[in-house]
Amino acid sequence: MAIMKALVYLFVYPGLLFLFVYSTFCEWFDRKLYARLQNRVGPAYTGRAGILQPIADFLKLLFKEDIIPENADRIIFSILPVIGVATVATAGLYLPLWNYDVSRTTFNSFQGDIIVVLYLLCLSTVILFLSGWHSTNFFSTIGGVRVLTMLFGYEVPLFLSVLSPAIVADSWRLAEVANFYQDFPFLLFFQIIGLFVALISLQAKLERTPFDIPHAETEIVGGTFTEFSGKKLAFFRLMTDIEMVVGSGLIATVFMAGFAGGLMGSLARFVLKTLIVIAILSIIRATFSRIRVDQMVVFSWKYLTPLAILQLLVSIIIKGVIK
């Protein structure tokens, strides 16, 4: 029974199948909202209000010709997209949605899983860099270098801001952090700065405007994805979508008190809270223009990191007061 449950957990809910379906829905939601903000219609034809468009795009890409550049390392070039999807999907397993028990340690919930999620999300960025580097194309190489440059900018504020609620909750376990804030929701008000920093860092991590620098199409064509086509590109797009879901799920867990309630209750809360986060990300995407990579690094070290450190100080003070 436990094995069955674990298998369902891994492959159906909240594992691969759920992540796939829900991430395509989130992509649709993001695209539709972005389009409406720009006075466009957005996806409209596939399914009701174009809701199946991301799946249609995914399937279409699967059937497209798959080209590997002559100079590229065939094996690495081919397995990188799969590893990318695997890392972010694995990160999704640690979100405290279902099949966990706060009182004991399970394979999907343990002390320090917050670090594991952050680590896996960071790994996906490194995979983007590697894919750009192994494409042996000027544009891809520049894109890959930009991915790394940006990584040094946003990763520190993201870690600091996500960890500060955990410091107040006195736990490195996502389920416990969520439970703590379900018991003391007013403490979340002191995490507003952290939420702000985390949202912006997540936007940068997902490489969306104003931080879509690594694949700025008017500058370096497709950036890291320039040489990818067909199945590989489909997997990379899936990876970005799942990353968006996992990232917003992480923020919803630590800053919005997680997903209490049984199977259905937690699902409803998860959908609602992640959609709120994605809506904010979409609005940010629609209201800014792309900035340069040097401006991005300056911005994150001059403003985001100090803010995150301020949040850390606030958290430490609060913790002292509570004690």
């Binding site: 903000l37 720009q38 006075n39 700025a216 629609a286 800014f288 223009s289 792309r290």
Partner: peptide
């Protein structure tokens, strides 16, 4: 110009 700067919202508005 807005599109080149990655500011697609302004691009859509002006072209409308």
């Amino acid at each position: 110009a807005a599109h080149e700067a990655g500011f697609d919202s302004l691009f859509m508005y002006t072209w409308r």
